[in-house]
């Protein structure tokens, strides 16, 4: 096993502790992110079935079926059946108790797509995820660059910056709602002192800013650690050569390190979108509950409100179906990315 395989457990210990010297090209962060194994992929996959070990235990469905059974059963009950139910429910009009059900074809979808409410939710989701993405990735890049430059206190900084990962999104939301509450929040007071009429309960833009801040605060650590690890893998020799040529630290970061981090940045962008789309539910719930005036009513929150508060099961199911289709497209895109990266034909 050579280092070029970039096996994840080999990577982390080394890059986190010390910079590697020498010119090998393994990108710890991205390589691991993509699941490692570039060389093994390329050579072998051609002449055999994709994603199957060359050395395998051959034919016979008995044992593998048994091995797959637990996962497939769990997926059946908690993934496929619910998804199927969403699909069915999305073409039904029914009362919440299920005593009165009518088949309405695609009425739920039609109503949904025609409603200004839903279109607003799409717009909001778009801006929220984009802003969150830029803020998260931008802060993470700056912090990672700074971490890479310094020697003293590096692990202390890293420890603190990683801390929000441990904090539940719900708790993060509560903390931020508290800090920026216009009536009593200490940071809102500061804003008021400097003359900003801050009020996320009233002003849609403020609300969107607040949830974006909270969501980013919670997620910067994720991007940060990938970038720190990625930067460590940038060969010192390359940087030294550039320094000899007179390139300053920032210039070197932009023109050497950043391009090498490209795949990591791409990967992080996709992950940030997924995070913003689906995993910020608790933050929205704790900070704004989708308001004011629907300004933070992101799609996944709307699914919940329509399903569990409004008890409009048909519409909620139709939204689930649309979201699932979207997520499926994301999955396929991500696969294509893995495909290109490490050449896993599956």
């Amino acid at each position: 096993m050579t280092l070029r395989l970039s096996i994840p457990w080999r990577d982390t210990r080394a890059p986190v502790l010390q910079r590697r010297h020498g010119g090998h090209q393994s990108k710890a962060g991205t390589g691991a992110a993509a699941g490692g194994s570039r060389t093994s992929g390329k050579v072998r996959r051609r002449e055999q079935e994709a994603g199957l070990k060359r050395a395998n235990f051959g034919d016979g469905p008995g044992l593998p079926t048994l091995l797959l059974l637990p996962q497939l059963l769990i997926l059946l009950f908690f993934f496929f059946i619910p998804s199927l139910r969403a699909l069915m429910q999305s073409v039904l009009l029914s009362d919440p108790f299920g005593t009165n059900v009518q088949f309405v074809w695609f009425d739920n979808f039609k109503t949904l797509l025609a409603s200004s409410d839903y279109r607003q939710s799409i717009t909001v989701t778009f801006w929220f995820t984009v802003a969150q993405n830029v803020l998260t990735l931008g802060s993470a890049l700056v912090l990672a660059f700074a971490t890479d430059r310094i020697v003293r206190g590096r692990s202390a900084y890293r420890t603190i910056i990683l801390l929000p990962y441990a904090i539940a999104p719900a708790i993060a939301g509560i903390l931020w709602a508290f800090l920026f509450n216009p009536a009593v929040g200490p940071l809102a007071q500061v804003l008021h002192w400097v003359g900003i009429a801050w009020d996320p309960n009233l002003n849609p833009t403020d609300a969107l800013i607040l949830v974006t801040l909270a969501a980013s605060w919670k997620h910067v650590c994720y991007d940060y650690i990938f970038l720190v690890v990625g930067l460590l893998a940038v060969p010192v020799s390359l940087m030294e050569a550039a320094a000899v040529d007179g390139a300053g630290p920032i210039r070197r970061f932009v023109s050497i390190a950043l391009p090498m981090l490209g795949p990591t940045v791409f990967f992080l962008t996709v992950m940030n979108f997924i995070y913003g789309f689906f995993e910020t539910f608790a933050i929205i719930d704790a900070v704004t509950k989708g308001g004011p005036a629907g300004a933070t009513n992101i799609l996944v929150y709307k699914v919940f409100v329509d399903g569990f508060v409004n008890l409009d099961l048909g519409s909620s199911a139709a939204q689930s179906v649309l979201l699932m289709s979207f997520a499926l497209i994301c999955t396929l895109l991500q696969f294509r990315y893995f495909d290109r990266k490490v050449n896993y034909g599956v």
């Binding site: 509560i174 508290f178 509450n181 009020d199 309960n201 704790a286």
Partner: peptide, 8 residues
């Protein structure tokens, strides 16, 4: 009039 808002 003031709005207390979420959290308070």
């Amino acid at each position: 009039m003031q709005i207390a808002g979420q959290g308070f």
